[in-house]
Amino acid sequence: MKKTLDELVRERPVDRTQVDAHKRRMLDELRAYRLRELREASELTQVELAGKLGVSQNRVSRIEHGDIERAQVDTLRKYVEAVGGHAHVEVELGDERIQIA
């Protein structure tokens, strides 16, 4: 006998904490992939970009594989500038937005 979706959900309820954590990981990976695309469009290797940033090639690789949360703001800013962009850091406090970098 086949089970309905409602029956399956009752047997295995959704853990919102896990879902939210997975969403965050997916968004980090998507952002990282976009950074990699920008680097490649700028015809830079990870080694060349690392030299411009003053970090190791391994650090560039980790950023491009989703380890953005632990990257320093200055490193991300330099990364974006090295591929021809401009980065801005903005703080949101209620309805107010403040650019801090």
Rank of each mutant, 00 (worst) to 15 (best):
R16A: 11
L5P: 00
L49G: 07
K52E: 15
L35C: 01
A71D: 03
T4N: 08
V89Q: 08
I68A: 00
R59M: 14
S61L: 07
D95L: 15
R70K: 14
R24F: 02
R16H: 09
E11L: 14
E37K: 02
L38Q: 06
D74N: 11
G66F: 02
E96F: 13
V55F: 11
V60C: 04
E90P: 00
Y79D: 03
S61T: 09
L76V: 10
S42Q: 03
G51L: 12
E92T: 14
D15N: 15
L93W: 07
E37N: 02
K52C: 07
T75M: 06
K52N: 10
L5W: 12
A41S: 11
D28N: 10
R12M: 11
E48F: 05
L76R: 05
L8D: 03
G84H: 01
G84Y: 01
V9L: 15
Q46E: 12
M1T: 12
L76Q: 04
I68Y: 01
H86R: 15
K2G: 08
D15V: 08
I68N: 01
V80A: 10
A82T: 06
D6P: 00
G66V: 02
V89W: 09
R34V: 02
R24D: 06
T4I: 06
E64N: 04
R36A: 09
V91P: 03
